[in-house]
Design a protein around this nucleic acid. Structure first.
Lengths: 115, 115
DNA sequence: AAAAAGGGCAACCTTTTTGTTGCACATTAC
DNA sequence: GTAATGTGCAACAAAAAGGTTGCCCTTTTT
């Protein structure tokens, strides 16, 4: 993902592109899948079952966190990550918009052919 | 987008990660938006209205093409790109799966609390 | 026949991404 | 109290992404 072309200044606003980019990685999709099953997991827990190092997983989690797909809470010595469904819902809406545009085209085309 | 972690060998299989990654860029989302309105556009046409060079736009189109979000047909001296809704539909399905997993968790949690 | 328009390819460059390693620090377990 | 555990941070390194420029080739226009 590129970070250029984001909002100019302040908080790196959470755009569709940012969220899609966060989902655009195999490892991160696996993390999302695990976390979306509900139970929060620590970084170490999420690292087990991955071939990557803890640091790599941490970085992936930070990417997901920037996109707000995931949220972390420090509890004692471990920081627990939990899923946040909001951005996913937003992307569903976004994709529906694209679909709808396409469908409109199709129906316009259809009525044109029929006329 | 990372290309590591894709299928080992043959045709770079079209995974959810690949498709999301293709959508994970502002410029490409704009291209998709334009093409999803229906009418195919040439590279030059798509370049007009962008601050980028033709080559840059071409590269973005190739990324979208690899993800099958877009398809090109050479006609005469220009190559026309047109939208293909399939991958978008697939991603909607994918996101619904994630959502559903989350919802299941919520309802399990709910019935647990109520019991 | 030229000129103009649309494109492909390759070489380069810069910035991001992705991943590792080493080390220090706090919290738990024994 | 010591050892384990779980993390954070920083420095690196390698690779991928995003863009540009230059050059050449093929269609269209004039």
């Amino acid at each position: 993902m590129s970070q250029r072309g984001r909002s100019i200044g302040r908080t790196p606003r959470r755009t569709p592109a940012l969220i899609f980019a966060a989902l655009g990685d195999e490892t991160r999709l696996i993390l999302v899948a695990r976390l979306s099953r509900g139970k929060p997991h620590s970084i170490s827990a999420l690292t087990r079952g991955s071939k990557l190092t803890r640091q790599a997983i941490t970085k992936h989690l930070r990417v997901l966190e920037r996109a707000k797909i995931v949220r972390s809470v420090r509890t004692g010595r471990e920081s627990l990550f939990e899923f946040d469904p909001q951005p996913i819902e937003e992307m569903k809406t976004y994709l529906n918009l694209v679909s709808r545009q396409w469908d409109n085209t199709l129906s316009r085309l259809k009525s044109f052919v029929e006329s």
